[in-house]
Design a protein around this nucleic acid. Structure first.
Length: 203
DNA sequence: TGACCGATGAAT
DNA sequence: TTCATCGGTCAT
């Protein structure tokens, strides 16, 4: 499998979030190699999106956590949430536009034992079914913030395309604070996956 | 220097 | 539904 080219990440952020379904996130680290198929994503559209960390920002602010979001697409944005979990995002769009895609769930495919050790749980459905969980399972921390995703230890490889018939679009999770923007259709899931952060159901 | 709070997860 | 837990962010 070959890594997705940087070009892939420069397009519209919601389109990238959709196209990331089915691609494969890999991390090779001291603990071992672990990987999974992306089954759930969310788009965060920068300046005008009240749910986005870079909401209202026109330019990078040195030292601010959103600094890497202003880089050209194709690198990692990792931040700490609730004082205890990391969330992994893919930076999108050309340099200067601070948008990103949050990876919310993976179907584990490689390194399940390493994941079990890191997560301290057995069931494969519990390994990567949430943004904090998948970072723990793959050993992704803020040390990986800014990493290039087209080469190096943290990469996204081209997997199998997911047809539209298997994709559902919903509002994003836990962004109620964003008012009307919380209703935007920016969450993409593989409908029938058993590995989502929460099961998809109609209506 | 300090107060506030969250793109979560796990237990209840 | 509740809460653990603490760094980032912004207001003093």
């Amino acid at each position: 499998m070959t890594a997705l080219p940087q070009n892939f990440y420069l397009a519209d952020t919601a389109a990238v979030a959709r196209k990331l379904l089915g691609q494969v996130l890999v991390h090779e680290s001291a603990g071992g190699r672990a990987a999974g198929i992306i089954v759930e994503t969310e788009a965060y559209k920068g300046r005008t999106d009240a749910a986005c960390h870079s909401a209202g920002l026109d330019a990078p602010r040195p030292g601010h956590r959103t600094e890497v979001m202003f880089r050209a697409g194709g690198c990692a944005y990792v931040y700490l949430i609730y004082g205890m979990y990391c969330c992994f995002n893919v930076v999108t769009r050309p340099a200067g536009v601070a948008e990103a895609v949050l990876i919310r769930a993976l179907e584990p495919t490689e390194g399940l034992d390493v994941m079990r050790t890191r997560r301290r749980v057995e069931g494969e459905r519990q390994l990567c079914s949430g943004p904090g969980k998948l970072c723990q399972a793959l050993g992704i921390t803020r040390a990986e913030n800014g990493f290039d995703l087209t080469s190096g230890p943290l990469r996204i490889l081209r997997g199998k395309a997911v047809p539209d018939s298997k994709v559902a679009v919903t509002p994003r999770i836990n962004v109620d604070y964003a008012g009307a923007d919380a209703l935007l259709p920016y969450r993409f899931v593989v409908k029938d996956s058993r590995f989502l952060s929460r099961a998809f159901s109609q209506r």
